[in-house]
Nucleic acid binder design. Structure first.
Lengths: 220, 220, 220, 220
DNA sequence: TATGAATGAGAATTCATTCAT
DNA sequence: TATGAATGAATTCTCATTCAT
């Protein structure tokens, strides 16, 4: 949550600096909520300032403009989910359990962080130009794919998984199964005339997704 | 942004001018493109008018305001995809072929109509408010689910499919596998450092999705 | 209610012509209501057409533009109140009764025709420029003053009224006592925290006004 | 409509710039003039900004929208007239003189502040909606009625006034006699073909009104 | 006589951003 | 570091009015 750049300058540490960090964090949190609720286009700098209980001018002081702010929010969001994924210690589990765990985690993370879905949508509406020079984001994501590759390797070696599974394809599928359901839950509930967000429906979905992914990965 | 000069005097005057239906269709087409490109919030009424080569005032004359216009565009989009799905005549195929055909169709439709994805995103950002009273949309969707149910039924009877598959879950999964990949192709290409839209990558994705869906539906 | 000008042209009489007259009358009635409710500035040509259940274009056909329409409505309003006043046959009454009758009539007319007050307000906001060349309006109004003059004369002759009363001043006072109370009833009710439009309050006002006017006109 | 050049560089820069109070006051003054001249509907935010020599956006910054601005203007107008009335110190005068003074004051105030009449008209056209929650306005007005009551009381005690006079009725009558004449002077001058605003006519009116009011209040 | 389609000029309001301290 | 005041350039929407039949 704390911006790493604070260590760059030589300002003596103390309450002043911590205030600055706190302000930045407050702005980021407010911006995340605002972008999640209204998208990049619909977000209002005024409301972000109000949510952060800080002066609007300060946002510009720290983040230059709306676009940069969005980019910072986005980076932070990726950092967070990848951090959590890392904490799953998937490599400590048996391959099948690791995949199941990843499916469950993805589902729960999206469920608990609906703003992540909206941020992704906004980023893509703008053709991900906020990630153009995002070497950092790439660096964040590669370990996940490497881990998944290792899991698939091990599963194939121990005879539980079929061979030839592309970890990127698999990750996209795992994410997609949760994402579409949750991101479009309003629309889907409306057109299928069925509450897709009831606890029961949510459990059914998770169960279905595990079946789909494992039905594909498992040998026979 | 500048009105195409083609309308100045080379367009044949006559029956087509002052044609209400034509004007409305032109507005809808322009709006669909604009909403797809910029989302609901980012769309500009001025640009829609320019795209339609019609007076901005006319948009309000026919569609009241931006929200209503969006809703009309959305309804038309649903109408179109459901129509196309209907034309697949899935019930004329063997169950396995029918499912494969639906996966392929969904993928290709999203690929050829990227605006559909953006419209859906926008609609969901605004909490499907635009569908609240869209009884028509609900009516459009039920035949598809009924068809899918019938296909699953037949597949189970002839011993090719496993039992207990929920057609809604399956449909959401089929859509989700394509949707996430295509809707977020910019972001995914950036974070995985790999062009997901190359012809080769696209073929690989389609193949993967068929494997996933059929790996789940087929009995062992 | 029927425009006198219909006799000017040589169009053969029949259903056609009566339709035209009826249309004009419908427009005038609709416009009167609209101007009364929203003022000249707030009135909408669209709504007038809707109220009249006629095409908007027809309003322009008959009345040229909004200003002319307003002027027509205004003239008609004067015509109507003066006609009603004329029908009181004040000269057939004893002077005191005639004055009392005029006070009562004015009060009741304003009460039953609140649009008259609003029309007057609008006309004055626009500096009565709609009456600039209103010789007809002048002609309508002079008989009233002449009548009042005659009443005051007779009253003075028979010893009931004091001398030197200016009929214009008296008429303005009679009108003003009702007008201010009714025209500002919303504001006055709010600032005096007292419902000025209850039946009881209305009776009290009429009684008060008679006292004031007669208290002034009567000789001791 | 063109910004007065006086602000370009001859105005002394310094303490007065970026002065919130001054800006708000300038906006209110400009708005009062604009609303008075064109009514609520006819007033233009652009012109108000130009009159105030301030950025239009600032009006919204301080007053939210046109309606709120109008309400603020209205409240300020009431505040002003009630303040002036208070300064008359009517209770220091003999009852008859107090009433005469109030008639004179009302007449002169309306004469010198014609915008007050227009504001009142606008407020009433919009059904006093702008006063609905104006507790402050109510509070401003009660002292005046209390004062008038006291005056009537004293007059009755010393034998000069008749009994049973309602102070609210009397106040409405005093106001109405001036208001109707002045508010409708354009129309009245036109229909009675007589200049009601010449100095002579104005004096005659004031004299007539005193006669009417005192003719009513005085005991025979 | 009657009408649905179309429009240009403007209206209120919004919004990201900068100024001055 | 922090802030209230101020702004220009849009942006949505409105409205009287005209066109074409």
């Amino acid at each position: 949550m704390i911006k790493a750049t604070s260590s760059e300058n030589t300002v003596p540490r103390g309450t002043r600096l911590r205030d600055a960090d706190r302000s930045q964090a407050a702005i980021l949190a407010a911006a995340r909520a605002e972008f999640a609720e209204f998208g990049l286009g619909g977000a209002r700098m005024d409301r972000i300032a109000a949510r952060a209980e800080l002066n609007k001018r300060l946002i510009y002081y720290y983040f230059s403009d709306k676009e940069q702010l969005f980019q910072s929010v986005l980076e932070q969001a990726y950092l967070h989910i990848r951090e959590q994924e890392h904490n799953l210690h998937l490599l400590d589990l048996k391959p099948v359990d690791a995949i199941r765990r990843l499916v469950e985690f993805t589902w729960n993370y999206y469920l608990e962080h609906p703003e992540f879905l909206t941020l992704l949508n906004s980023a893509n509406l703008h053709r991900a130009r906020h990630l153009d020079n995002a070497q950092r984001v790439r660096e964040m994501n590669s370990p996940l794919i490497a881990t998944l590759q290792e899991i698939l390797e091990r599963g194939r070696t121990d005879g539980s998984f079929r061979g030839g599974i592309d970890p990127v394809q698999l990750y996209v599928s795992i994410a997609g199964l949760s994402y579409f359901y949750l991101s479009n839950s309003y629309t889907l509930s409306a057109i299928f005339d069925r509450d897709l967000m009831s606890p029961k429906a949510r459990n059914a979905r998770l169960s279905h997704m595990c079946d789909v992914i494992l039905g594909y990965a498992l040998k026979d």
